[in-house]
Structures are given as structure tokens and as C-alpha cells.
Design a protein around this nucleic acid. Structure first.
Lengths: 348, 348
DNA sequence: TTGAAAGCGCTAACAT
DNA sequence: ATGTTAGCGCTTTCAA
């Protein structure tokens, strides 16, 4: 005689000769039951191959220990390491992580917010740049933590890097190498993240006494394709420049591909700095100079803040993480540029 | 007077002056209630801002319309497009997708299997190469669909490409270009996927009358780093070769980086073909020749098969998808190689 | 077409 | 230390 439906807690209790409460306790807090009882229960659990129904539990407890990590674009490798860190931190605390892909589509964002309202998940870690309309009408916001990006004028707990300073540092490096006509491949303006990096770019120029030329700025969605298109647009407008500061490694890679297809090489003709330091940055040719974000820390903090938000009632403190300018082969000095080709250097 | 807890179906029923059953029906099957009733109910729903509790619903219905997509390594962009397709197909059918990362770690796989046993999810789409021990003891397997990879000796519904034929085609192309000493950067042997591609490689050699040299094969986990290490290992053993067939684009990219750091250039000195056609393949320098997998179709089929498995009781038919050899700049003919610049000193 | 009522499987007061 | 019991919010027979 074979069982076909999963056993429930009552059957275990019956077999062990105890109440369902005792079975529940044995499984949840084993040290709160007498050892002999625990043994009886565990024997029944194993005999019946009992697996507690998590749905019933989370229904009862009104929490399913699941959070949604909603990212701007899941195809950007930048988010993967963040996901990993979030997931590690989460599973250590008994949480699950659902990764969602916004793809710049408002309805997709709305769907994920609904999942929280419907209690599919307890909270939302947001890595998107635009404030979702759906949240406006909600009187009680669900538990939300912002990671990497923030919305202007909305006070949500956040963890991010100092984008203004990071961008300024990257551009200052280009200027120090003798570059003056520097393109900025920005994120989608006027989002906060994109604006911050643009501000850093402008500050670096200003401090070097270089006047800001808005026509050297192209906005895009951080994708390879956006980088390609940004460069094409500049050429189409007849702009000349000797360096590019891109707001993502993907855009930098797209930009380099576009430059190459115009017969320009990097860094001999044009220097390029990206942002993020994705895994591919170092394997790329030339190895990409970039602003490294501490993704692991970003993810860990985001999840920790979420747990804090979910368990306590305190609003977690905002966190600002440091960046690091990683110099590889995609930048050459403007003078070397005139002198000729410079071989790129790669990390171990 | 502000509400602080979410309203439940009973409050809606009370306000609308109907039973909870009617509210439930209005929301689930609106055409089964009289229009006037429907209007009353909807008015109450809106007044109270009622959002049905999905946890209670799935608890009651014993299904939460969630499937887990468990991938080998979430850092490999190959899986992202698959995820997208799975997610699209899923959300069209009212399903959610949870993406899990196996990272070659058995306990991580076990955790995800437990999630299904605990009814956190209804089914499992597996994109991993090793049969999880945990499944052996289970008498009733949870609903599982294999995508891209399969386990030998276990009959699970699967969707994948013809790896033998695809690998054979890629290697045959290298041979046609005059290459004889061809390295194969394989996946983790003896997994099915890795074995199939190795078989294709061997078949192509055999058909060209080239004898198989096992020391030209290096196994790895499809990562950039694995590609790099594979090439280093070959050099360490003093092997010479003029072409590389890698079992993933990531390995191909790692291989090219390693070759470059040895002063060898691609394709002038060494030709390289990858597998997958990830987004970066085309932006890379040189643009990577590769075997394109129909990721979108792979994902769509996997999810459709899962829905079929979950709703019907039929075992979905296996699906075999075609691949396409994409020729870009990373392959040159062996004769052009002799004519052109030889930076490599290793192979005389 | 609608309502009454019985749970789904579990946990957490409260009682013993 | 253990048992009793009352639900969590919803769906779904079954009856009316």
C-alpha cells in the first residue's frame, strides 16, 4: 500500500502518540521538548517522510521569508554578484530571494510590487531608477530597501556608492592624462544615479577649468547597445573627442566596439573608462579601466537592512560604500596618443 | 480613522452585503455573478483597497504557481536570456519564476529541491549537469524539466540542442580552415553535456582522419577563469596548437585573454570558436565565432513543458532545438596564419 | 445566482 | 513539558 498524498502534521502526531503542537515544537524548537518525546516524534517524521508544508506555515505566520530583488536589467552582469551576496546573506537568515527583471517596463515593476502586496514576498530590494507610480497611491509602503540607486525626494533606506565622487575621480584621471574633450556616456537622465555621475563629471571638468559641453553627453540605459549608439550619435553630430567616461562597463564595451568599427582603436586613439568592474572588464581587449563598485558589500548591506526592516521596526541607517578606480589598458595619455600605440596591461 | 491591517475577504463581503463566496467568485470568475452583484462587490473592493492574500489562496489551492529555475552558474550570461524567456512564458500563464544558483554546490541544489518538497514552489526547471543525490531517495520526484543539460539514465522531460552535431560542426569548420591541432576546452566531464560536445569534437576529427589527442582536451566549469586556466595548463604541458574550440563563450573569452598574455593574438596566431553566443560575444575583440543556441526557444519550451507537467498528467515530449554556427572574426585559416604575423614563439 | 459551512496544515495562546 | 483549541484568509462543495 503506497501513500500518494503528503502526510500532514496530524498523522505524524498520531503515529508518535503526541499532539500536533508537540510535533510543531519538536521541529521548530527541539530543545523545548523532552528528549524521549523528541525521539518518538522524529521517528514518526522519518517513517512517514514528513516534510512540513511551508505554505501553511507562512500563511499562518503571515510572512514567507521571501524578498524580491528587483533589478533594472537582469542581463547586466553587474547585478549578478549583487544577487549572489543578497542571496547568501538571505539564506543565512532563512530567507529566500526572488530576482525580478524590470527592463525599464513600468508594468513589470508594478507586478513585482503587487507580489508584495499580495504577500508573495515580505519586502522589496529595489535596484531601479524611477519611482514607480504604483507606490504613490499606496498609503502604507511595503518594506523597501534601495540598493545602488535612489529616488529623489523619497526617503527610503539605501545603500550605494558616492557616485559624484567616483565619477569625478574617473574623469579627473582622464584629465590628468591630458584629455580635454571627454565624452560622458551617461545613464538615463534625469534619474538620480545618472545625475550624480554627470555631476561628478562636470565637477572634474570645472576644477580643471574645462568648460562643459552638453553635446558631449549621451544618455543610455547602461547596455552594450546603448554604448554603441551613444558613440554613433556623437559621430553623427560630428563631435571629436579623445576620451570616454561611460557610466557602465557594458556601455564602455559597446562604445569600444563602435569606435573600432570606425577604425579607431582604444587606447591609441581614444581612452575609455567604464563603471562597475564586471567580470568581463578584465578579460576584454583592451582590459577595461573602470570604477569598481563593492558589489558584494552592496548586496550584503541591502539584505541586512531588509532583515532589519522586517524584524525590527527601526529604519536602517543609510550606507555609503567606497569605490576604487581600477586602471587597466583602456586609458593612455593624450601625448602618448599622438606618439603612437601603447600596449595595454592586464591584471593577473 | 485609518486602517492599519489589510482588509480580508470577510470585510469586503460585509460591506458589499454578500457572502465571502460571492466575493471570491467575483474576483476569480466575474462572469459567474450577476452584474449588479459584481458592481456592489467591486465597489467594496475599491473602497477598502482590498488585495487578496495570495498566501491564503495558494495554501488553499495547494499550488503557488511558482517554479524554480535552477541554473549551474548565475554569473554566466547564457542563463539570463533563458531566464527572460522562462519568465515571459511563465507570467503569461500566471506563474512566477524563482531563479536559483547552484554554483556547483550540492547543498545549494538540495536546498532548492527542498523548496519544492516544502511547496515553496510547484516545480523545478533544472539547468545543471549532475544528478542531485537528494533525488535518489525520493520516491515521488517533484515535477522536473531539464533544460540544456540532461542526466544520463534518468528519464526527465528535456529541451536541449543537439550538442554532438553542434560541436562537430564547429570543429569541422576549424578543420576546413586548415587547422589540425585543435584544443577542446570542455565542460566538466563526464557530465552529459560535456561528453556530448567532446563526442562531436572527436567525430569531426575522426571524419577528417585526424587522430584524437586526449592531452589537447581541458575540462572546466564554463567560466572565464576556467578558459584561462585551460590554456595555461596546455602551455604548462608544452602543447602546441593552432585552434581552440571552447564549450562556452566565457571559456573562449578567458582563453583569448590567456593567449594574449602569452603574446599570441587571435585569430592571427590561434583561431577560437566558442559556444552559446552570449551578448558579449559580438562586442568582444575579436568578435567571437560561436555556436548560437536558441536561448529564447529553450526557455519558452522549458516553461511550457513545466506548465504541461503541472496541469496535465502527461509527460511532455522531449524537444531538440537547432543550433547555428556564427562566423565572426576569431577564426582565420591556417594558411593565412602562416602568411601573417606570428607573434607566438611556442609552436615552431 | 448566491449563501452556508467546512476545511487546507500549521502555529500560538492558553490551559494543564 | 505537553495538550487543547481557535483560528490565519481563502476557495469550494453542497444546498437553497
Amino acid at each position: 500500500m503506497t501513500r500518494h498524498s503528503a502526510p500532514n502534521i496530524r498523522e505524524v502526531a498520531a503515529m508518535a502518540g503526541v499532539s500536533t503542537a508537540t510535533v510543531s515544537r519538536t521541529l521548530a524548537e527541539p530543545n523545548k521538548v523532552r528528549e524521549t518525546t523528541r525521539e518518538k516524534v522524529m521517528k514518526a517524521v522519518e517513517a512517514l517522510n514528513f516534510v512540513p508544508n511551508a505554505q501553511a506555515r507562512s500563511f499562518r505566520q503571515r510572512s514567507n521569508r521571501t524578498v524580491i530583488l528587483l533589478v533594472r536589467d537582469i542581463a547586466n552582469p553587474f547585478y549578478l554578484e549583487i544577487y549572489r551576496a543578497v542571496e547568501e546573506e538571505a539564506s543565512a537568515a532563512g530567507y529566500k530571494v526572488l530576482m525580478g527583471d524590470a527592463r525599464g517596463d513600468a508594468t513589470r515593476v508594478a507586478n513585482h510590487i503587487d507580489m508584495v502586496r499580495e504577500r508573495h514576498a515580505d519586502g522589496l530590494i529595489l535596484m531601479i531608477g524611477r519611482y514607480p507610480e504604483e507606490l504613490v497611491e499606496l498609503k502604507n509602503l511595503p518594506p523597501i530597501v534601495m540598493a545602488s540607486e535612489t529616488f529623489e525626494g523619497l526617503d527610503l533606506p539605501s545603500v550605494k556608492v558616492n557616485n559624484v565622487a567616483a565619477a569625478k575621480g574617473a574623469v579627473a584621471h582622464l584629465i590628468a592624462q591630458g584629455h580635454h574633450a571627454i565624452v560622458h556616456l551617461a545613464g538615463p537622465l534625469p534619474e538620480q544615479l545618472a545625475s550624480d555621475r554627470l555631476a561628478g563629471y562636470r565637477t572634474a571638468l570645472a576644477e580643471a577649468g574645462i568648460s562643459f559641453d552638453p553635446s558631449l553627453v549621451e544618455a543610455g540605459d547602461y547596455s552594450i547597445e546603448a554604448g554603441r549608439q551613444g558613440i554613433e550619435a556623437l559621430f553623427a553630430r560630428g563631435k571629436t573627442f579623445s576620451a570616454v567616461f561611460a557610466s557602465s562597463d557594458q556601455m564602455a564595451i559597446g562604445a569600444i566596439a563602435a569606435l573600432r568599427s570606425r577604425g579607431l582603436s582604444v587606447p591609441q586613439d581614444i581612452s575609455v573608462i567604464g563603471f562597475d568592474d564586471i567580470l568581463f572588464a578584465n578579460a576584454f581587449e583592451p582590459p577595461l579601466s573602470t570604477v569598481r563598485q563593492p558589489r558584494r558589500e552592496l548586496g550584503r548591506h541591502a539584505m541586512r537592512m531588509m532583515i532589519e526592516l522586517l524584524s525590527g521596526n527601526t529604519r536602517p541607517a543609510d550606507v555609503l560604500l567606497p569605490t576604487e578606480l581600477i586602471l587597466r589598458g583602456s586609458v593612455a595619455s593624450a601625448s602618448a596618443r599622438k606618439a603612437g600605440s601603447i600596449a595595454g596591461k592586464r591584471d593577473a
